[in-house]
């Protein structure tokens, strides 16, 4: 669990905000508006992109070619965000995303990164023992499936396009999106029809 900030940190933040406000640089109102805007991004956006890619071959091609354009087509503003790349899982290859240096994450389409994504253990182990990390989610890749770990950076963000699970034949996009979670988009778990 993330520890709460220390009293020193809380006091520093308030001094910092007061200094910025006194100089007319950042107001409380701007902070509130920004928090509201940031809170709106969630993994549901990434899930809708995946569901559409599973049902619409043209969109799938766009998603794999230019994730940023594909996100914008879903109404997401990617202005100021680093490019988004999408990693396509196959019957023989699975992808896992990490940011070993910090916490780079496709926030516009997944929202805030979860605490574990930012943890030292995940950052250290995802590249050394990816199957061990996957096992902590109860994820076991079938025999013969390789795993490729991709390091997100400050300049390029990644998301996984998982394989459409068996048993979802005939499902519409909304229903498909409902089974796709943040963990599937990072690659620590695989979607299933159940």
């Amino acid at each position: 669990m993330a520890a709460p900030p220390t009293g020193d940190s809380i006091a520093l933040l308030e001094r910092f905000v007061a200094a910025l406000a006194a100089r007319g640089i950042v107001s409380e109102e701007e902070i509130a508006t920004q928090i509201e805007r940031t809170d709106r991004a969630s993994p549901e956006i990434g899930a809708r992109m995946v569901a559409r890619a599973w049902t619409d071959p043209a969109y799938r091609a766009l998603l794999l070619r230019d994730g940023t354009a594909a996100a914008e087509q879903m109404g997401v503003s990617m202005a100021g965000a680093p490019p988004l790349g999408v990693l396509e899982d196959s019957a023989t290859l699975h992808h896992l995303v990490v940011c070993t240096l910090c916490s780079c994450y496709p926030r516009m389409v997944l929202g805030y990164p979860p605490h574990w994504y930012k943890s030292a253990a995940y950052r250290a182990r995802a590249v050394r023992d990816p199957r061990g990390v996957l096992a902590e989610w109860g994820t076991v890749l079938p025999d013969g499936v390789g795993v490729r770990v991709v390091d997100s950076t400050a300049d390029y963000r990644w998301m996984v396009l998982p394989q459409r699970p068996a048993g979802t034949e005939g499902w519409d996009e909304t229903r498909l999106a409902s089974i796709v979670t943040r963990d599937h988009l990072v690659g620590v778990a695989l979607p299933s029809a159940a």
Binding site: M1, A2, V98, T100, L101, Y112, P114, H115, W116, S119, A120, A121, Y122, R123, A124, R125, A126, V127, R128, D129, V133, E136, W137, D151, D183, V188
Partner: peptide
């Protein structure tokens, strides 16, 4: 931290969402 031995035996807690 990629591959850092110091954290090789530290578990990752999947339930640690902590927004």
């Amino acid at each position: 931290l990629g591959g850092a031995p110091r954290f090789r035996c530290t578990p990752v807690d999947p339930d640690d969402e902590a927004p």
